[in-house]
């Protein structure tokens, strides 16, 4: 009984969600911890000269970060940032933003 009640409430809530402005929830994991400090500059929409990277293919973001880090791609500030992350961390960041 409790379970049915819970399931019903859950359906109702999910239905109601569509009626309100949607906010994407964030999960607390390593991916998020590494990536949300980037969101200060890279938001979910293009705002001025700094591009949004939300929804870009993970491989594209990963390659860009590795190239910035290894000075294979020129940048103003991204090289200085990318040097702060390992290959594995860059992969996580790429996954996070591509899933946005």
């Amino acid at each position: 009984m409790q379970f049915v009640k819970l399931a019903l409430w859950r359906c109702l809530v999910v239905m109601l969600v569509g009626l309100f402005q949607s906010v994407s929830a964030e999960t607390i994991d390593q991916r998020t911890m590494l990536s949300i400090t980037c969101s200060g500059c890279h938001s979910d929409e293009n705002v001025g000269a700094i591009p949004s990277i939300a929804g870009k293919p993970a491989q594209y973001i990963e390659k860009a970060l590795i190239d910035f880090r290894d000075d294979k791609r020129s940048s103003t500030v991204m090289g200085r940032h990318a040097k702060g992350y390992s290959d594995a961390e860059i992969k996580l960041i790429a996954e996070y933003f591509s899933a946005k």
Partner: peptide, 25 residues
Amino acid sequence: FLQLSGSVLSAASLGMWPLNLIAGN
């Protein structure tokens, strides 16, 4: 509960909802 019910949820709508009932078990 939130994690069970889907990845994209409206924080505002949930905030306004009587969650005490939802988690009532």
